[in-house]
């Protein structure tokens, strides 16, 4: 039960971060593998799955506000669907420890860019990835 509540809270906190565009997913994976001792593919699979409903709600408001460049986005989807299928096959075929180490290197790089990135003090609600319900 305690584990369940911790997992719920971890999902909640990283969910809030994701909504603010602070890449909560990679942090959630680190938590699942590093703190909870879950294996890398399960953690990655959970994160992928959890992004589906979460982003769907954001997408509805973006579509309503006509914020999506559909033509260009569809080009990206077509190419990305192929590469993501191939890289998923690769990641699930490799030794999980190897994937974990490569993932570690990836997040260290992301972490360094986050430390030095320029960002505005506060963003207006109409600028971001979520809650664009008002015009």
């Amino acid at each position: 039960m305690k584990d369940w509540i911790i997992a719920l809270l971890a999902g909640g906190v990283t969910g809030v971060l994701s909504a603010w565009g602070v890449g909560g997913g990679s942090l959630l994976i680190l938590f699942m593998t590093g703190v909870q001792g879950m294996d890398q593919p399960l953690s990655q699979g959970i994160n992928l799955l959890y992004f589906l409903p979460t982003s769907l709600t954001a997408l509805v408001s973006h579509l309503k506000n006509r914020l999506i460049d559909i033509k260009l986005a569809l080009c990206a989807v077509a190419a990305g669907a192929v590469t993501t299928a191939l890289s998923s096959l690769l990641a699930t075929g490799l030794d999980t420890q190897v994937v974990r180490k490569i993932f570690g290197a990836f997040v260290v790089i992301i972490g360094i860019t986050e430390l030095f990135r320029k960002c505005p003090e506060t963003r207006r609600p109409d600028e971001g990835t979520q809650d664009t319900t008002r015009e």
Binding site: G11, V13, G15, L42, T57, D131
Partner: peptide, 21 residues
């Protein structure tokens, strides 16, 4: 094992969206 993360994430995403900015 996935379920609590999925539920928490959904709730967090919703709350985060509301208080964004």
């Amino acid at each position: 094992r996935a379920l609590p993360y999925l539920i928490g994430g959904l709730a967090g995403g919703f709350i985060g969206g509301r208080i964004f900015g």
